[in-house]
Design a protein around this nucleic acid. Structure first.
Length: 572
RNA sequence: GCCCCGGUAGCUCAACUGGAUAGAGCGUCUGCCUUCUAAGCAGAAUGUUGUGGGUUCGAGUCCCGCCCGGGGUACCA
């Protein structure tokens, strides 16, 4: 983590020269252009200007005091006052040799681990999971793994939608229109059919609506028959969710659905009323945010006029439970961007309810999935694309490709490769973009096997594995030092050193695409290295060092991919 | 109406939070498989970053106006 050492020394020097200045935003970053150096800072320019100093003269003063000769060639002052750092060969060598000895993998765990609750996936009972759910699931799982890699304690929680007004209509449908055979074949599809059926029938039909309300009241009052049906719907749904999660290789520490908090809802509202936070308005219990600029016009309802709680109430109870149970320093919600207002309300409301909670709230939202016409995504028939079908298609395409590229592999192995590659492609397609951008769904883009895709990264990994297979029984000697002279070796090695920087950026911004970009670049640098720097045919120290470089690249690739939730394969 | 996102190459997307010449992939064109897996590598072409102003050493990024698209906007989640 050389850049952190540079950064710390730089901050110390600036602090000595300018004691009042806030040095926390004086950062050392990789140079965008290698020709300028390996790392740079541009923070001195702004700092000098804010203090009516000449930036270049100030930079010169800093450089005068800054002793980094252990790591860098003489610092260059460039342009209006950039500092450019160029790594000494020895510093690079030391870092690589340490990693080769297994002392680190170019990142370090946080000295002050935090506890983080991450809420993701959260599908609704009785509705099939579709492509929209995959984003939350895959993003949330990847984020959890990055936090864990950096030493934080993570509690993942799948907040399933298993309680609420939709069960009124579902119960009517179940009792009046259930097709048991269809239920046995595809339970979620059948439940969805029932819901849509009753939903359509209730449109403008008071009698149907009344039946649905009645069934819901009976359920909430603990009617034995309705409770039994409700339980069955949950079991069937969860069974299908678990199938998807198992295919995606995603898991959760907790699965506490909305119903888990049911007994607490009344108490939450009563407390809000007693504390004068909630008040009656138009028959409902409502919280106004008059002192809150952006929420002024958007009060939150915590009890509907019919007396029932809603999702704000449930989410308040959920936050309370999380605070009491895990005392997290941060709670992260991974949902689509349409819920931004809801979470603004929730966070503001919780701040008022429990002012000393000490938690940082973070709504990590993502953009919509659009069709090729740029409108919200639907297939031609109007049906939302099901997740299971998407996964099947991905694996099939990967299987066809591996069978073409490598027909001699046993079918069983090709199947396993297809699974890893196909699922990896889907996950990577979801992770590699900026999560806040809407994205246009396209089968060929999402399932592409060339270009900036998971298979590209996996392929680089298999080439490394292949080299080590060729090595056979020969034991790997650890180089004591790295004397790299080829441009491709240096580029690759220096990129390895940035791994930790990227991981920290990912958890700061909750954006796994930074890690995707990094790994893609790493695989690219490895590709050039692989073409230009023979490994097994090289001799002496060069061979030893290149083998070690391959090994380290493989480790970073594998760690990075696994952290994103992707598996690796030795052959493709 | 108001609020929040967004608009970048023909297409799909990046751009390390205000940095140096805006980058990748797909598609198009040109080379490279008796040598560690060609799902690869090397190279070419492609841009008024929606638009008009402003801020400053420096703007895709920040501020203001306008155009276009999406979402939200009191009892769905």
């Amino acid at each position: 983590m050389i850049h952190l050492v540079l950064q710390e020394k730089l901050q110390q020097v600036v602090n000595a020269l300018m004691p009042e200045a806030d040095v926390s935003n004086i950062l050392v970053r990789p140079c965008p252009e290698p020709k300028f150096g390996d790392y740079q800072t541009n923070a001195l320019i702004g700092l000098a200007k804010r203090n009516q100093l000449n930036p270049r003269e100030f930079a010169a003063q800093v450089v005068e005091q800054l002793d980094v000769t252990e790591y860098c060639e003489p610092i260059e002052i460039a342009g209006p006052g950039f500092l450019n750092f160029r790594l000494k060969a020895m510093a690079l060598s030391d870092s690589l040799a340490g990693a080769a000895r297994g002392e680190h993998l170019f990142y370090h765990t946080d000295a002050e681990p935090r506890t983080v609750v991450i809420d993701y996936s959260s599908p609704n009972v009785a509705k099939p999971m579709h492509v929209g759910h995959i984003r939350s699931t895959i993003l949330g799982y990847a984020l959890a793994k990055v936090f864990r890699l950096l030493g934080h304690k993570v509690v993942t929680d799948n907040h399933i939608g298993d309680w609420g007004t939709q069960f009124g209509k579902l119960l009517v449908g179940w009792k009046e229109h259930l097709d048991k055979e269809a239920l046995g074949q595809d339970a979620l599809a059948e439940m969805e059919r029932l819901y849509k059926l009753v939903n359509a029938a209730s449109d403008g039909d008071e009698a149907v609506l009344a039946r649905a309300r009645n069934e819901l009241v009976k359920l909430q009052d603990g009617d034995a028959e309705n409770l039994a049906i409700w339980h069955e719907m949950i079991d069937l749904s969860r069974h299908q969710f678990d199938e998807i999660y198992s295919r995606l290789r995603v898991n959760f520490d907790e699965t506490l659905g909305e119903s888990f908090y049911n007994d607490r809802l009344k108490g939450v509202v009563d407390e809000l009323i007693a504390q004068g936070i909630a008040e009656e308005s138009e028959g409902a219990q409502v919280v106004f945010f008059n002192d809150h600029k952006s929420l002024k016009k958007h009060p939150a309802i915590v009890r509907k006029s019919d007396g029932a709680a809603n999702y704000t109430t449930t989410d308040l109870a959920t936050l309370e439970h999380r605070q009491n149970t895990w005392q997290p320093s941060e709670v992260i919600y991974v949902t689509d961007g349409r819920q931004q207002l809801h979470f603004q309300q929730l966070f503001a409301l919780y701040d008022r309810w429990k002012p000393n909670h000490g938690m940082k709230f973070n709504h990590v939202w993502f953009g919509a999935i659009l069709g090729e016409d740029g409108r919200p995504f639907k297939t031609r028939s109007g049906e939302i694309i099901r997740l299971a079908g998407l996964l099947d298609e991905a694996e099939q395409r990967a299987f066809d490709t591996v069978s073409k590229k490598n027909p001699d592999l046993p079918e069983e192995e090709r199947n396993e490769i297809a699974r890893v590659v196909g699922l990896g492609a889907i996950k990577y397609a979801d992770l590699s973009g900026n999560r806040q951008s809407d994205y246009v769904f396209n089968w060929d883009t999402m399932l592409a096997l060339v270009g900036n895709t998971a298979p590209y990264l996996l392929y680089a990994f298999t080439r490394i594995r292949s080299i080590f297979r060729k090595l056979g029984d020969e034991s790997l000697t650890r180089p004591k030092a790295f004397a790299l002279d080829q441009a491709e070796e240096l580029t690759l090695a220096k990129h390895l050193l940035r791994f930790g920087l990227v991981l920290e950026l990912v958890i700061e911004e909750c954006r796994p695409n930074y890690l995707c970009n990094y790994l893609y670049e790493l695989a690219g640098h490895f590709g050039s290295f692989y073409e230009n720097c023979p490994v097994l045919q090289a001799g002496g120290d060069t061979r030893t060092q290149r083998l070690a470089l391959c090994n380290l690249t493989g480790q970073v690739l594998q760690t990075g991919l696994e952290t994103l939730g992707l598996e690796t394969t030795d052959r493709m």
